[in-house]
């Protein structure tokens, strides 16, 4: 039996009235229950794609189906399946969080008694209940972001789309949000996340698509993508300054300052030989860390390749 994908985007195109071609035939599939990352630099087409999925932007070609329901042909039915947390704050600042949530549920046809119970549940889970009956404009930035998540959950959607939900949010609140969203995903909701915090995508998401200049340049599992990273750079903090750098075959050692070295090496190269060579040269390493987030390194590489026309056609989504 074939499973109906949570999201099936086929050759989706969007050209704005000013001639900007934001999507040039995007295709991707998200399976039910997935936690899917949609990454891309600013202006890559992420928000346009999400805008079309949530019917806020009109597509100029192609189709997008949510659990088999076409967003373009059966909009109302498809919207019933989607919950959206947009990038920009888009609730009435003069209303109270409780009313914002209950009214949002009302737009989905959910009776007020049911909506009131859900509003209490989600506002409590997102630590907003003590602000529920104060005007939303009095809340902090992080609270406003969480309120948009609570609002999106009011219809208990099968597909939750989060467009940079943690932008400008401190790490503590971000972790609260990650925990909540992970819980929602574990309970069966398919989640699509766009973010500029790549460690967030790496930690949370199982599958990933990278979009750039209106094209999907990568669409694969997070594991497979990260396995493509063939070179890693480690930062070594030394116990004492080192005069001459030892020569280690297969490792490019560089001095950052007197007390810090950088070692760039193939992922196939083992660390033992590096440490053996360093010990033999009297270099004592106090601590070690990855220079950059692995996904960040790959992301930059893919996007840079795209800019210079070196994008690997084999890695493009089918």
């Amino acid at each position: 039996m074939t499973t109906i994908p949570a999201l099936d985007v086929v050759e989706l195109k969007k050209t704005y009235a000013n001639g900007v071609e934001a999507l040039k035939g995007v295709s991707l599939t998200v399976q039910p229950g997935d936690f899917f990352a949609l990454l891309g630099p600013n202006g890559a087409g992420k928000s346009t794609l999400i805008g079309i999925l949530s019917s806020l932007v009109n597509a100029t070609g192609g189709d997008a189906r949510v659990f088999g329901v076409s967003v373009l042909e059966r909009r109302n039915e498809a919207m019933r399946l989607i919950g959206l947390v947009p990038q920009e704050l888009n609730f009435n600042f003069f209303e109270k969080p409780f009313d914002i949530c209950v009214n949002a549920a009302g737009f989905y046809g959910i009776p007020r008694t049911v909506a009131a119970e859900r509003a209490e549940k989600y506002l409590k889970e997102l630590v907003l209940w003590d602000k529920a009956f104060q005007p939303a404009r009095a809340m902090s930035g992080g609270m406003k972001r969480r309120l948009m998540i609570a609002r999106a959950m009011m219809s208990e959607p099968k597909l939750l789309i989060l467009d940079e939900p943690t932008a400008g949010v401190d790490i503590e609140i971000r972790r609260t949000m990650w925990k909540f969203i992970s819980g929602i995903n574990a309970a069966g909701t398919t989640v699509i996340l766009t973010t500029h915090y790549l460690e967030e995508a790496e930690q949370l998401c199982r599958n990933i698509a990278i979009i750039d200049h209106g094209h999907i340049i990568e669409n694969t599992s997070m594991k497979r993508l990260l396995s493509k990273l063939d070179v890693e750079t480690f930062v070594l903090d030394l116990a004492a300054p080192v005069a001459d750098l030892p020569v280690v075959p297969g490792v490019a050692l560089a001095r950052v300052d007197d007390m810090t070295l950088e070692a760039e090496m193939s992922r196939e190269h083992d660390l033992n030989s590096l440490f053996a060579a360093l010990s033999a040269s009297g270099v004592v390493v106090r601590s070690m860390r990855n220079k950059a987030n692995r996904l960040e390194e790959l992301f930059v590489r893919l996007v840079e390749n795209g800019k210079t026309g070196k994008a690997d056609s084999g890695s493009r989504a089918a």
């Binding site: 109302n76 009435n92 949002a104 737009f107 609002r151």
Partner: peptide
């Protein structure tokens, strides 16, 4: 006001006809 404050999107992205 709903357009200006963008909360019209709450309605436009909902299943309401």
């Amino acid at each position: 006001g709903a357009k200006f404050g963008r909360h019209v999107e709450e309605m436009l992205a909902s299943p309401m006809p």
